[in-house]
Design a protein around this nucleic acid. Structure first.
Lengths: 346, 346
DNA sequence: CGAAGGACTGTGACCGATAACATACTATAC
DNA sequence: GTATAGTATGTTATCGGTCACAGTCCTTCG
């Protein structure tokens, strides 16, 4: 096999087909203004040389953009990973390429450190992160290139004046989950919360926590203090200890399924039965939720669909002729399994 | 705020600083052949205009490459996700950008469908996949651009004539896990296997399965037939049923922790105690392994380190002056928890 | 004092594509 | 038969950089 020579360019194809490079460009981009015979000759030349268009050159020359950069939180989180998966799938189907850059909470993020990640100024971006670095990235991009960015966030259903935002209605889902526990007869529900952004502009509570509070208030129940946890299972295991050891606690709504796993484990280790002594409900319906023991009651979230939606929204914003995706998603649905039940009478 | 004008180019900076575009290029790339005063003026102009180099143009013009494309299996698999994370981390630290493209087993992958994913011919690639599409991608790239590719695979320890391969020694790890079970007193060990590539050139068994066989042979034990599973937990749950219902089976080595979770769940549902009636060992040490009930005995795998290594190896191959990373990894280590124990006497 | 050499900077071609405009050739209409 | 659209194709500039080379200017040395 010959050593890999330099790849064929549009000029090589043009020479072989006996046409100008522009004609080749027309054929490649499917312009109707090419005679069938010419088109065939060019196609043959393309096949013979194994020609592939260079996306970099195409973008540089001002052609149609075909790449997105995703700025995301830690991909080991189920939500981020699933959203990314949705974006990638949709992008691949559209022939786009996806770059990814992780916003590490351990780093300090200046505006420059964010824009520096982009291959070029004006690169289309999707931000998938709810924490501090994510908020910062949102702000930075909104200031520098508002037309070429989309953020996945908590959708409030208020048809916001933020046409770049897309997401799930976490609040409504939390309400539903909390009501489920109250309906089972629990006098109140505790909440083991995922981290939230701490910046000045950022929210103090996640929408998940807010929905939980709202449901308790509406039912006229006591709202116990939120217990905050980190993202990791070991952190959650530590954070949940006081809750699990408190015999007056009969129901815990966890900010996600990882936290719920830690809570169940913690309960098990000190001999409290789930759901007999303690009901535990998760969030996200991760793949393992149905296969834990006890199987986890949780809220199903279609992150992958949101990822797809984010990609479609981005295309729409970049090119008005692409239809705008609907901003409402199959609303999150509670899946009742074995980890929640009525409280023991005493 | 003014509408986002076109971003500043190297020419804009040059004009403002009163130098040639080439001098700006020199400053940006840290050439020593620039007078300090000139450098300062250029730096000031860069700051004032908020100039950022365009990586596309740089690559196109033949400058240093600063991007990798990762071809990977489903990112919802822990191993793929963790490897990707390692690659991304290392790349980000080096100022490179990472593109990602998922090899969907449901698609048929022609050579063209693989090269078409790359932004340009000659784009550096890391392949993270052991299944059919992954093998195909490996072959395709090896044929078209062998110098600009690296694959993460099963490392055999044979210092292979495949300088583009890097990975973990799955075989040795499987031997260790199997011996652990035999040492506990099990007469033999069954194996619930992850899928393998089925193509003609591909291996019929994963190295994990081969290590398991080797350990059984060395101990002179019966080698039961492999039970094959898909990647997903529901598939594993189905596949493992016959094994779990067979009372002569006392120990199962699972191809990964997801399969182990499914096995434990299946055992639980028909009332077989783990590890009392049945010992189960996993592979990978996923984050949830320590928090399952019972906590899972498994083999720790540092996929993230392999990802980092793959990136370093790629840089080394692209640019000989970058040192070659060591090809041996902290060998996988068995972590004994609660899901494995001695068989019940009968 | 002139030549040699190093340090700094500029000029022009080029990477692989697209956009805008120009031109040649065909039909169709008057 | 000629003006009038189209249709098919070519030409040139441009995108934002790097590379190779060519000049300056100032030292340093014989």
């Amino acid at each position: 096999m010959a050593a890999a020579k330099k790849a064929a360019s549009i000029w090589d194809v043009a020479r072989l087909a006996g046409v100008s490079h522009q004609t080749v460009s027309r054929v490649v981009n499917g312009s109707p203004r090419v005679a069938p015979g010419t088109r065939d000759r060019v196609m043959d030349a393309i096949a013979e040389l194994g020609y592939r268009p260079n996306r970099l050159a195409r973008t540089l020359a001002g052609g149609a953009v075909q790449s997105v950069t995703v700025l995301t939180a830690d991909t080991s989180l189920y939500g981020s990973e699933a959203s990314l998966r949705g974006i990638e799938k949709a992008a691949r189907a559209a022939g786009w390429s996806v770059s990814i850059s992780v916003l590490d909470p351990a780093e300090t993020h200046s505006d420059a450190s964010i824009t520096m990640r982009l291959p070029r100024a004006g690169e289309p971006v999707i931000v998938v992160a709810h924490d501090d670095p994510g908020m910062r990235a949102r702000r930075t991009l909104l200031a520098s290139q508002p037309e070429a960015m989309v953020a996945i966030g908590e959708y409030t259903g208020k048809e916001p004046d933020e046409p770049w935002l897309i997401g799930l209605d976490d609040g409504a889902a939390a309400v539903e989950a909390t009501r489920h526990l109250l309906d089972l007869g629990h006098s109140t529900v505790h909440h083991l919360a995922i981290p939230t952004a701490k910046g000045t502009e950022a929210v103090l509570k996640s929408h998940r926590a807010e929905g939980w509070i709202e449901a308790l208030r509406q039912a006229g129940r006591h709202v116990p203090p939120v217990v905050y946890s980190g993202w990791s299972i070991p952190e959650a295991f530590e954070a949940v200890q006081p809750l699990v050891r408190d015999e007056t606690v009969t129901a815990i709504l966890c900010g996600n399924d990882d936290l719920a796993l830690a809570a169940i484990r913690a309960a098990h280790l000190i001999g409290r039965d789930v759901p007999g002594d303690l009901s535990i409900v998760g969030f996200d319906n991760t793949p393992f939720a149905a296969y834990m023991t006890p199987a986890l009651t949780t809220v199903n979230q279609d992150f992958e669909a949101v990822g797809r939606g984010a990609f479609e929204l981005l295309r729409h914003r970049l090119d008005g002729s692409v239809p705008k995706p609907k901003p409402c998603w199959p609303s999150p649905e509670l899946i009742v399994r074995d980890s929640s039940g009525p409280p023991k009478r005493r």
